[in-house]
């Protein structure tokens, strides 16, 4: 028991120490400062074979076996360098933030690139899994993703990302742990609100849905117009940007409110709101979001939609975060525009 406790506390200390090492950044270049190197089990086994060979060479005074031992020994020594050089200069950067709904599988996206050399036999791993070997051609970018799995809504950060390689012979392993600033946002799952609650106390009757074209008038595009309202067919034929102007010249403002779903659990409310946000943004209407502790003023467009969804995802801190991925609401606020 004591041993177990001791081991546990040691491993906790170790992981705390490792967690404290190195800063979080969106891009890393591998080099002496962040690559670790050590023989693998297979490497130690190989050394054991070499020692056996050396004993054979000594006992039978066999020069040729000495030669083989020296040749393989020198290769072992060189392979330390080759193993390091293989990773050296590899650039690891955070890829696009992945956005998923709670019922879907998410992933952290990263980009690996080496501008000068081919990189062979790479494995990358997070706590959630390990990849197969992959290789990288000089100058080409390789997008990799580390799965998040199905998780509760929230914003997740990749805590540690490991890259390793035992190139060339599997005797030596070079690896690195990086705190890459890769994010995965998990939105609430989408739940259609019940029919009776449609129109939910907004300032305006349900005006979603694109009006048929014959009732619309066309006017020229102004800055601020929703792209979804541009009459693209017209643009294709006349190269004039015209906007389908529905009956209301100034579209009315929807407010999606927390309080509209009185009596539902908060997760359910978030799911309803999520569905509403998607519906409205598809329709191109202008809407605002009002949930406890956060209000987003009415706007439109995909950026607006994402920030609304992000707010929904962030609402309250739910669920214990796994060790690798952690929930960090304070950081999200600072980077709302992601």
């Amino acid at each position: 028991m004591v041993g177990n406790n001791l081991r546990e506390s040691l491993s906790n200390r170790l992981s705390r120490f490792l967690a404290s090492r190195g800063a979080r950044a969106s891009q890393f270049t591998l080099g002496q400062h962040n690559v670790y190197i050590f023989p693998t089990k297979a490497g130690f086994a190989f050394l054991a074979v070499l020692i056996l060979m050396l004993v054979t060479a000594i006992n039978y005074q066999s020069s040729l076996i000495y030669l083989v031992v020296f040749l393989l020994g020198v290769l072992f020594f060189i392979s330390i360098w080759l193993c390091f050089l293989n990773l050296q200069g590899l650039e690891v950067s955070a890829g696009p933030v992945s956005k998923n709904y709670a019922s879907q599988d998410g992933a952290f996206n990263l980009v690996l690139r080496h501008s000068q050399r081919n990189v062979y036999g790479l494995y990358y791993a997070s706590m959630l899994g390990r990849s197969d070997t992959c290789s990288l051609k000089a100058g080409e970018s390789l997008s990799v993703s580390s799965p998040v799995g199905r998780r509760a809504r929230g914003v997740y950060y990749l805590e540690k990302f490991a890259i390793e390689s035992a190139y060339p012979f599997g005797w030596i392993r070079a690896w690195t742990w990086l705190k890459v600033d890769a994010q995965a946002v998990v939105y609430p799952s989408i739940e259609e609100p019940p029919e009776s609650l449609e129109g939910l106390g907004g300032d305006q009757s349900a005006s979603s849905g694109v009006k048929s074209l014959d009732r619309d008038t066309l006017r020229s595009f102004q800055v601020g117009d929703v792209l979804g309202h541009v009459h693209w067919k017209k643009f294709a034929s006349s190269e004039q940007l015209v906007v389908k102007d529905s009956a209301q010249v100034t579209p009315s403002v929807d407010w999606l409110r927390w309080d509209s779903f009185e009596g539902y659990a908060s997760e359910m409310r978030l799911s309803f709101l999520c569905a509403e946000v998607l519906k409205r943004s598809e329709a191109g209407s202008i809407f605002g979001l009002d949930i406890p502790g956060r209000t987003i003023s009415p706007s439109t467009g995909s950026k607006h939609r994402d920030s609304c969804l992000l707010e929904l995802a962030k609402y309250g801190a739910v669920g214990a975060a796994p060790s690798l991925i952690y929930f960090d609401a304070s950081r999200v606020g600072a980077e709302e525009s992601v």
């Binding site: 083989v68 036999g121 290789s135 060339p168 599997g170």
Partner: peptide, 16 residues
């Protein structure tokens, strides 16, 4: 020896 090492190498490099 060359063949043996090439097998080890291939094991690390993988499909490429």
């Amino acid at each position: 020896i060359l063949l043996a090492l090439s097998i080890l190498l291939r094991l690390q490099v993988g499909p490429s």
